[in-house]
């Protein structure tokens, strides 16, 4: 029985080489950046992860067809004048006597009468008008401040978007994908996305660096992109460096996009690239 147990224990290391026990191999950090606006897909196509997604808006262009409408509008205008010259023809003989009579009468009567009713009506109207004007002004101000607020938010959003899509692709008009993509979906891989996102959350100054610290952290995300838990596989022995990683992890609690499935990432953090710069 002991022999069997021994044999079985010896078998275990051999079993670990079977295909269903996958081997971990560290992926060399890619030299490209990832535009975080790009969608995470399971099978990214060949392309550039930093490329800006092309919006297919040319479909909207047919709207330009209604533009000729203004040309149609003038058309009804010319017919209008046509009846006008017809109507005046019978009118001219009538006004002639009418014009003569009212002139003297109207000159005397309306002058004293008009001032009397005007104040009575205009006070109420004026009050109403003023109220309406005030309401309109208030509504206008509210609308303006609301618009200003919306503009500010839009400007902030635009700035944030510009910031996030600040990465310029070296290849113009490249399709969104991965450099080694073999799939058929326009988007980026979850690994590349997570790498870029967590890197952006990580703040550490070269003036804090001493030696060549390196730490390894395992992060577990669910399919919604929520960090379930994490653990340090290796600490750097530099508490300042490790604290900066904790902050980066805390800021990465929620990914801005969903993942294709629940995933875990073993991330090696170091300062190789930063310290290589003079």
């Amino acid at each position: 029985m002991l022999l069997v147990s021994l044999l079985l224990h010896l078998l275990l290391p051999a079993l670990s080489y079977l295909p269903f026990f996958s081997q971990h191999s560290i992926e060399k950090p890619p030299v490209y950046r990832v535009n975080l606006v790009n969608k995470i897909v399971k099978n990214p196509q060949a392309g550039r992860p930093e490329a800006t997604p092309v919006k297919k808006k040319p479909v909207v262009k047919p709207k330009s067809k209604p533009k000729p409408k203004p040309a149609v509008k003038p058309k009804p205008v010319p017919p209008k004048p046509k009846p006008i010259p017809v109507k005046p023809k019978p009118i001219p003989p009538k006004p002639k006597p009418a014009k003569v009579k009212p002139k003297p009468a109207a000159k005397v009567k309306p002058v004293p009468k008009k001032p009397q009713p005007k104040p009575a009506v205009s006070r109420v109207q004026k009050n109403n008008l003023q109220k309406r004007l005030e309401q309109m002004r208030a509504a206008k101000q509210k609308k303006a401040s609301e618009q200003a607020r919306k503009d500010r938010i839009a400007a902030l959003k635009a700035a944030a978007l510009a910031e996030s899509s600040n990465i310029r692709s070296p290849i113009d008009a490249a399709p969104v994908g991965m450099a080694d993509g073999t799939g058929n979906e326009a988007g980026v891989s979850a690994i590349a996305f997570v790498q870029e996102f967590i890197q952006q959350q990580w703040s550490f100054s070269k003036y804090q660096a001493t030696g060549a610290p390196e730490a390894e952290v395992k992060l577990f995300y669910n399919a919604e992109g929520t960090l379930l838990h994490y653990k340090f596989l290796k600490k750097s022995e530099n508490s300042i460096f490790d604290d900066s990683l904790l902050r980066a992890i805390a800021k990465s609690r929620q990914l801005p996009q969903e993942l294709p499935e629940a995933m875990s990432f073993e991330i090696v953090f170091n300062l190789k690239d930063m310290l290589a710069k003079p």
Binding site: E27, P29, S203, M263, M274
Partner: peptide
Amino acid sequence: VCLLCSPAVAARIEISSPGEQTIP
């Protein structure tokens, strides 16, 4: 037991420079 205990496949990546090189 081996199958249950084996960790889920973890993607290994390396981040060799912080994205923000000053502390806000």
